[in-house]
């Protein structure tokens, strides 16, 4: 990888005083200009909090440590003025529920115009022309009429398109899409993901796609990071990671997924549940659910190490490619 656009190193986020209630625990992650990175993990894995922390969007009681650099510029602890020039302009973010991100009492056109004025200083006729171009870019037909619509007059899919248009208003170098299609129906999800791919092709913007759906990530990004209980457990190129996962958690996640083709087999569920906040084990956080766990897994947190080309995993064990912990016989589920 060349010079990274964003480089996260040793990022930690605490909401309480106890180290056990750490929401993000030492995440290292870099993204190159124009790259598409997927971040997968279950609820509470820290996949969203990592990026909220990077952009300084967490409430004041959250304590953020480590470093987040945007082309060398430190964002953690940066003054508000600097962050304001980054948010929306260099790095934009869209969220799961578009209708709660839009202001229900303002028309779409006005909200888009506000973003354009803020980020690009466009107003009046130039602003309106650019608003129409943005709506057209995100595939909203009849853009002119839509300008005077309120968010409740649009469907969930259209609202998400408006959010994407608003994120594009600042011509960002990186778009962080946090579960952008989770609230949408399957056929609409396919439309939105195709739209994001098209925009990336046209603008060369980098994309971080945060999702719990491995399929969504597999189809839309080149590199994938897997998070579990606040830590990055595995990272690699999409096909390497999905074809030959090396961390027992990634392996378990893949084995637990029902498929749409091939013979139906019993799902290999991962026993137990994600550790509750404040009750993380001292060692590897996956150890209590891991079929391969050894005594040292309980006491020592594993360091991330290289297991292949651009492929890293944080596991004490040397798991060979092709071996799957997900296929091991289990005790009670």
């Amino acid at each position: 990888m060349g010079v990274p656009l964003v480089e996260i190193a040793g990022l930690t986020v605490d909401f309480g005083n106890d180290w056990r209630s750490r929401a993000v625990d030492g995440v290292d992650l870099a993204i190159a200009p124009g790259e598409a990175l997927g971040v997968v993990g279950e609820s509470g894995s820290g996949k969203s909090v990592t990026w909220l922390a990077a952009l300084g969007l967490l409430p004041a009681r959250a304590r953020v440590g480590g470093s987040v650099r945007l082309e060398g510029q430190q964002l953690v602890g940066a003054p508000a003025r600097l962050l304001e020039s980054v948010r929306g302009k260099r790095i934009a973010m869209i969220f799961q529920d578009p209708s709660s991100c839009l202001n229900p009492v303002h028309r779409i056109g006005r909200q888009l115009g506000e973003a354009l004025k803020l980020h690009r200083g466009l107003s009046g006729a130039a602003g309106e022309a650019e608003t129409l171009r943005l709506l057209d870019q995100v595939g909203i037909a009849d853009a002119k009429r839509r300008l005077s619509d309120y968010p409740h007059q649009l469907s969930g899919g259209l609202n998400q398109r408006v959010m994407i248009a608003m994120a594009l208003a600042g011509q960002p170098d990186l778009l962080v899409a946090d579960e952008p299609t989770t609230a949408l129906d399957a056929t609409i999800q396919a439309q939105i993901l195709a739209l994001l791919a098209g925009i990336r092709r046209d603008t060369g913007m980098a994309l971080v796609l945060i999702s719990h759906d491995l399929g969504v990530v597999a189809e839309n990004v080149s590199r994938v990071a897997v998070m579990y209980a606040g830590r990055l457990v595995e990272e690699g190129l999409g096909q390497d990671l999905f074809d030959a996962p090396r961390h027992p958690y990634t392996q378990g996640l893949l084995a637990a997924l029902p498929t749409l083709t091939g013979p139906r087999r019993r799902l290999a569920a991962i026993p137990g549940t994600v550790p509750e906040p404040g009750k993380a084990p001292a060692g590897c956080s996956f150890a209590p659910r891991c079929p391969l766990a050894e005594p040292r897994c309980m006491s020592e947190p594993p360091a991330s190490r290289r297991v292949g080309l651009l492929h890293r995993a944080a596991c004490h064990l040397q798991i060979e490619p092709g071996f799957s912990a997900g296929a091991l016989p289990r005790a009670a589920e």
Partner: peptide, 17 residues
């Protein structure tokens, strides 16, 4: 509906509505 489901394996032809 079936073709809209994202899959892990090789990408299939998609019927985009």
């Amino acid at each position: 509906l079936v073709s809209a489901i994202p899959v892990l394996g090789p990408r299939r032809e998609r019927l985009l509505l």
